[in-house]
Design a protein around this nucleic acid. Structure first.
Length: 428
RNA sequence: GGAGAGGUGGCCGAGUCAGGUUGAAGGCGCUUCCCUGCUAAGGAAGUAAGGGUGGUAACACUCUUCGUGGGUUCAAAUCCCACCCUCUCCGCCA
């Protein structure tokens, strides 16, 4: 949620910024119109309310019925004005809830994903290697769905039988590999990140705080008539973890991680490339997230990015980092870097982490604050997050990249300890 | 799921049965100051959040908030209704 005070103060700036991400230029005007309406009605009704209070006290002393009568009349008027004020405020807030975040000033301008830029000038621990398609051998250039099922490590067919299209299922050594990836993702970040195992069904408020609701309801699965929702990402419960709380400044940055299943309806994605495990309704993910004081945001953004990229690099996968342009930015994000891994079998780059900085957009919705020692005021914190491991996509890039000439899959060294020290998954 | 008890400020806890000067006693904690070689103990003062208006600001005024939402009343933490949550006991259960 944007700060209504910022909108009042600099409506042009806000509006311009939102237009760069494709919003309606009149949106902010409408918010302001409703806001002015609300404030006018509110202050009128407040004056009446103050009068009623004064008259009530007077009546307690004098017992003068005329005063009671007058107070009652004012009270009725006040009730009516207050109702109108509340309605205007709600209309304003409904618009505000559907308004996306303002992109960061260093976010590249662009209208769609085609204008996403190669990330430059970042404080990276590992620079992505120069990409050369020719360094991949023919046995690596086989899509996972052409060999994984034969190997008995993937079973798309029966997953569809059980749950329907766009569900997938790992089996045997494939399932073991998926679990190893989860364990590794957690272990990789355990030095600084507290592990949480949160609920994967959440309340409407929880999904609203991250910005997934009200605008993107059709992307999420709901239960009990919209009272509960299946989380699309671990970001959702982790962000709401500190909702309505004031975090002690010494605890910032507060780093959390969670393994969770993720559920997405992927409405409208039919017809796109959905074969195999690359786009499924349910998948496992390890998420890393930080609550920070605003001045720590930049540093933590890089930390999260370095961890997301470092992990896939440590598995011997080829990756690249893109700087998401204004038009392709997620609703709540002010700046996002995508980490993509190369899947040689399909000759595709797979998005395996979106590392985003949300400024105070989510914190405002979730009401997460800290006492700023400089101003001594209670202010909103910033949130940042990214995937540490998005299991199916990393799994896919991994089995394709590490496929050997004999059809076996070499298990990267860091993963072996989570797979009973096995070095290879052998073909059947 | 059934029965009972309860939800008040950063925390504990009075007030609710007799509605009004109670944004709320008292305590703890915290902040500042005093005292004191240091510390502890002691003394003094301050200390909820949010919205609106005015002001560059410090701040001033005002409204809202005693689980949430409605109602009664001139006036609600206090009365009425609905809902939510917590605890205890019973039932059920991985």
């Amino acid at each position: 949620m944007l700060d209504i005070r910022l909108i009042r103060k600099e409506p042009e700036m806000v509006s311009q910024a939102l237009v760069t991400r494709g919003e309606n230029p009149d949106l902010i005007k409408e918010v302001l119109r409703l806001d002015e309406k609300y404030r006018g009605l509110e202050s009128e009704s407040e004056k009446l309310r103050a009068d009623v209070k004064r008259l009530s006290k007077e009546f307690a002393k004098t017992k003068d019925e005329a005063i009671a009568k007058k107070s009652k009349a004012l009270g009725e008027k006040e009730t009516q004005l207050e109702a109108e004020a509340t309605a205007a405020k709600k209309a304003r807030d409904d618009l505000l809830l559907a308004t996306p975040n303002i992109p960061s000033s260093d976010c590249p301008a662009g209208e769609s994903h085609e204008e996403n830029a190669k990330a430059e000038g970042l404080d990276l621990e590992i620079e992505p290697l120069e990409f050369n398609k020719n360094k991949f051998a023919p046995h690596q250039q086989v899509p996972h769905f052409e060999f994984a099922e034969e190997m008995g490590i993937l079973d798309m067919k029966r997953a569809v039988k059980i749950a329907g299209p766009m569900f997938g299922m790992f089996r045997a050594e494939g399932a073991k590999l998926a679990n190893a990836l989860i364990q590794y993702g957690l272990a990789y970040n355990r030095d600084l990140y507290e592990e949480i195992r949160p609920p994967s069904l959440v309340k409407t408020e929880t999904l609203t705080a991250t910005g997934h609701l009200p605008k993107f309801a059709e992307d999420a699965y709901s239960l009990e008539d919209g009272k509960l929702w299946a989380i699309p990402t671990g970001e959702v419960p982790l962000t709401y973890l500190m909702a309505d709380e004031i975090i002690e400044v010494e605890k910032l940055p507060m780093r959390l991680m969670a393994y969770t299943p993720c559920y997405r309806r992927e409405a409208g994605s039919a017809g796109q490339q959905t074969r195999g495990m690359l786009r499924v309704h349910e998948f496992d993910k390890v998420e890393i997230l930080a609550y920070v004081a605003p001045e720590q945001a930049q540093e933590l953004h890089m930390e999260l990015l370095n961890r997301a990229a470092g992990l896939v690099h440590s598995l011997g996968l080829t990756h690249r980092i893109t700087d998401i342009c204004t038009g392709d930015l997620g609703n709540s994000s002010a700046r996002t870097f995508d980490v993509e891994v190369y899947a040689p079998g399909e000759d595709r780059w797979l998005e395996c982490s979106s590392v985003s900085w949300f400024t105070d957009y989510q914190a405002r919705r979730a009401n997460i604050r800290y006492k700023n020692p400089e101003t001594k005021k209670t202010e909103f914190i910033h949130t940042l997050n990214g995937s540490a491991v998005a299991v199916p996509r990393v799994w896919t890039a991994l089995v394709e990249t590490h496929r050997q000439a004999d059809g076996s899959i070499q298990i990267p060294e860091p993963l072996q300890k989570y797979m009973d020290s096995e070095t290879h998954i052998k073909p059947l």
